[in-house]
Amino acid sequence: MRGDIGVRSYWWEAGRPAGAVVEPLQAVIFDVDGALADIERDGQRRAFNAAFAAHGFDISWTVAEYGRLVCIGDERRRIASALRRRGYGRISAEIATHIQHTKNDLFAEWVLDGDVIPRPGLDDLVNSLYAAGIAIAVISTGSPHWVEPLVRQLIGEGIAGAIVTPDDLPRPTREPDLHGHALWELGLGPECALAVTGSAHGLCAATAAKLATVIVPTAYTGGQDFTGAAAVRRDYDGWSADGCARLHRHWWMAR
């Protein structure tokens, strides 16, 4: 353990020995928020607006406005910032907690109704990975209340070997190490895995965990800086387990 009680450390943090053999790909870690589905514009935004209305607030985020707000990764901070701009001051954080809970409930209902669809080509890629014996993990900064049913809906029951949200970490942190915890649950080091995310924020989180990372941008994130990514793809069409393994190997060989 590190000196800070409750913060998990990992065996791979000591670094990779020089000249070490490139490990084969054993897992792919998908970010729900962008990589599995483009849920922000027509999913989360609608749920936030419905939650504001349910609590009596005349706040309705447009597509463009919400596109600027998604850079605030923490949803409560995102809501609180909107409330503070409207003069609610110190109580904004407390109100934001209640609104976020309502938003999660509404979004979970929409998920269960099948309103969220996977990114193009995702089904074929996941089936290819599963058939090749490559583990699949999923991470999200969202609530397990809606993340877990959404994962089941998008990739199938029992396909993900690990589903990690901030609730699974030993203690809450501002920037939770979801990738590190997913690796810990799978019993793998980062040299054995590939991360797939949809944003520059996700890229930063994955590279901080020492993972080779593929970007599949969304409508909101297409113009972001993806420097350091192993690859940037428009979607998953034509991509397979073999393609993931080659990309992973080439990235580590270049290290």
Rank of each mutant, 00 (worst) to 15 (best):
W11Y: 05
E13M: 02
G15Q: 02
G15F: 02
A18I: 08
V21N: 08
V21E: 15
V22K: 08
D33N: 14
G34L: 09
L36E: 11
R41P: 10
R41H: 09
D42H: 13
R46L: 15
R46N: 13
F48M: 12
F52I: 06
A53W: 07
A54L: 13
G56L: 03
S60C: 14
W61T: 10
T62I: 00
G67I: 07
R68H: 12
V70S: 10
C71S: 14
D74E: 15
E75D: 15
R78A: 10
R78M: 14
R85K: 13
R86G: 05
G89V: 00
G89F: 01
G89T: 00
G89K: 03
R90V: 11
R90H: 06
R90I: 04
S92N: 04
E94F: 04
I95L: 15
A96W: 01
T97N: 06
H98D: 15
H98Q: 14
H101A: 15
H101R: 15
T102M: 12
K103C: 12
A108I: 00
V111W: 08
L112A: 11
L112P: 01
V116S: 00
P118L: 04
P120N: 02
D123V: 12
D124Y: 00
D124G: 00
L129E: 04
Y130S: 14
A131C: 03
G133Q: 02
I134A: 07
A135T: 06
I136E: 03
A137V: 05
V138T: 07
I139A: 04
S140E: 09
T141W: 08
G142D: 09
H145V: 11
H145Q: 13
V147Y: 04
L150G: 12
Q153C: 12
L154S: 03
G156W: 08
G158R: 14
I163L: 05
I163E: 04
V164G: 04
D167K: 12
D168G: 01
P172E: 12
R174E: 15
P176G: 11
P176A: 08
L178A: 09
L178N: 11
H181S: 02
A182G: 03
P190K: 01
E191Y: 00
L194M: 08
V196F: 03
S199E: 08
G202Y: 05
C204V: 12
T207D: 00
T207G: 01
V214N: 04
I215L: 13
P217Q: 05
A219N: 04
Y220P: 01
Y220A: 07
G223H: 12
F226L: 05
A230T: 08
R233Y: 07
R233S: 01
D235P: 07
Y236A: 07
S240P: 06
A241G: 01
G243H: 10
R246V: 05
R249V: 00
R249N: 06
H250N: 09
W252I: 01
M253C: 06
R255L: 01
